[in-house]
């Protein structure tokens, strides 16, 4: 319960700032690198990184560094992707097992004929 409130608090705090709101808006269109996100702002990179840090610790976005490039994305999108993938895995197993059910029926049917 407390934990939920803290998460909400930090999310509201994160969104109270216009720069951070703009970043969230931009990420809503898809993941982007920190330099892409920083481009529209007249701001030194260390200051911009502080905003990214606030968004990240609020749980609204996440970032990962590959080589020298840091890419950010909205976490809800990531969660939705994970949700979708599990749903598709479920479908794959359901279909696979439908096949196995009919194969076993077939094999048992054959056996009964002899």
């Amino acid at each position: 319960m407390d934990n939920n409130c803290n998460t909400l608090d930090s999310a509201f705090h994160a969104l109270a700032d216009p720069t951070r709101r703009a970043v969230i808006q931009q990420l809503g269109k898809g993941s982007a690198t920190v330099s892409e996100l920083a481009a529209p702002f007249d701001m030194a990179l260390p200051s911009f990184m502080k905003h990214i840090g606030v968004l990240e610790s609020s749980g609204l976005i996440e970032s990962r560094k590959i080589g020298r490039v840091r890419t950010c994305e909205i976490k809800a999108k990531r969660l939705a992707d994970v949700e979708k993938w599990f749903d598709e895995q479920r479908k794959i197993w359901e279909r696979r097992y439908e096949n196995l059910d009919s194969l076993l029926n077939e094999l048992n049917g054959d056996k009964n004929e002899y």
Partner: peptide
């Protein structure tokens, strides 16, 4: 974790999982 019950003997289901000529008949989802 995926659990599935089959109307067949354990040996028969084991064969379907471990023999390639049987795997070829069911493993890919249609």
């Amino acid at each position: 974790t995926i659990k599935k019950e089959f109307a067949a003997s354990r040996q028969q289901v084991w064969d379907c999982y471990t023999k390639s000529e049987l795997l070829d008949k069911w493993f890919a989802p249609k």
